[in-house]
């Protein structure tokens, strides 16, 4: 069936709540302030007592989620706008991520933290963050970053089934994007990328909303006769480097599209991986399309200027196609 991303989210949450009585939702802003927020109300109605509306206390309720996970629940803690995860940083980064490791494997923390990242339009500097790279630089977390209704539904199941902490990141601009949903529930495993579009001329590795923008760009490039392969890692930790390297091995050209800031972003890690491991396959320099290294400005002209766009992806694809380097 066809469904929008938000419906895939709601279905995924509904399935894990129904299957596992240990699953609790801590927080009510899974769908932000969008029209889809009614879906949370429906979950509260259908799973009474399983959805808790905590105080505005990110350290407090993130820590509550961690402790509850240690003592037998499988909480999904909604931190809402990704920028607010900084309020919860000591718990997410310095407690949850470390506990299994520093106890020598004795204690697991099966908690999921949900955040909605990215440039949403008028969010300005304090409601537009994409903290994926900072979180990726924290060993001990897993990071799921779905881009479709099907993926978010299946990755929620994987996240809840995991015995270790997961940060679930999605983009508010994904919520209304339509996709296919299989009839039966499925679990999408951690660390398995999905090739969203096959192509032979260049590889575009993109994450979250940028997968959707890259697919639009790929259609336009196809109209010019350029066949782009679009690879969606789906989970940033663990990262399916093998699929990315294999794709670049076939195409010899790479554009990385990610909404983190350019310096030390998720895109930087992917580009570095390919440069280190597939240098001989590259026929052109790698190009990153990223958010520029400035805070996110409010005004729409400036906001548009600093973020990845379909036009920037197409321009990057043209640039890697024009570069000429004999295969080594």
């Amino acid at each position: 069936m066809t469904a929008v991303y938000a419906d895939g989210m709601a279905l995924g949450l509904r399935e894990v709540l129904a299957e596992d009585p240990r699953v609790y939702l801590m927080g009510q802003y899974f769908f932000g302030l969008t029209r889809h927020r009614r879906l949370t109300v429906e979950l509260m109605r259908d799973f009474p007592g399983r959805v808790w509306n905590p105080p505005i206390a990110e350290v407090g309720y993130a820590g509550t989620g961690i402790g509850a996970a240690i003592s037998g629940l499988r909480p999904i803690v909604d931190i809402a706008t990704a920028s607010f995860i900084f309020q919860a940083w000591p718990q997410v980064v310095n407690e949850a991520a470390n506990i299994r490791y520093m106890t020598g494997g004795q204690t697991g923390v099966p908690v999921v933290f949900h955040i909605t990242h990215g440039i949403r339009g008028g969010g300005a500097s304090q409601h537009s963050h994409s903290p994926q790279a900072m979180l990726m630089n924290t060993p001990g977390l897993q990071i799921i970053s779905p881009s479709t209704a099907r993926d978010v539904r299946g990755l929620i199941r994987a996240a809840v089934q995991s015995d270790d902490p997961v940060v679930w990141i999605d983009h508010v601009k994904l919520f209304d994007i339509e996709g296919e949903l299989p009839d039966a529930p499925e679990t999408i495993p951690m660390g398995v990328a999905d090739i969203k579009r096959r192509g032979t001329d260049l590889t575009i590795v993109a994450t979250s909303l940028q997968v959707q923008r890259s697919l639009v760009a790929a259609e336009r490039l196809a109209a010019e006769g350029i066949q782009a392969e679009v690879v969606d890692p789906r989970t940033l930790v663990p990262l399916d480097r093998a699929t990315i390297l294999q794709s670049v091995g076939r195409t010899g050209r790479l554009v990385v599209v990610d909404e983190c800031h350019r310096s030390c972003g998720v895109g930087a890690e992917i580009a570095a991986t390919v440069a280190e491991d597939a240098f001989d396959a590259l026929r052109a320099p790698i190009i990153r399309v990223a958010t520029e290294d400035v805070p996110i400005p409010f005004s729409r002209t400036m906001e548009e200027a600093v973020q990845p766009t379909v036009e920037k992806i197409i321009a990057a694809a043209h640039a890697v196609m024009e570069a000429r380097r004999p295969r080594g």
Partner: peptide
């Protein structure tokens, strides 16, 4: 402190 509260929540 909040982690201890979380264990109590689970109990």
């Amino acid at each position: 402190l909040p982690i201890a509260v979380g264990s109590a929540f689970a109990f």
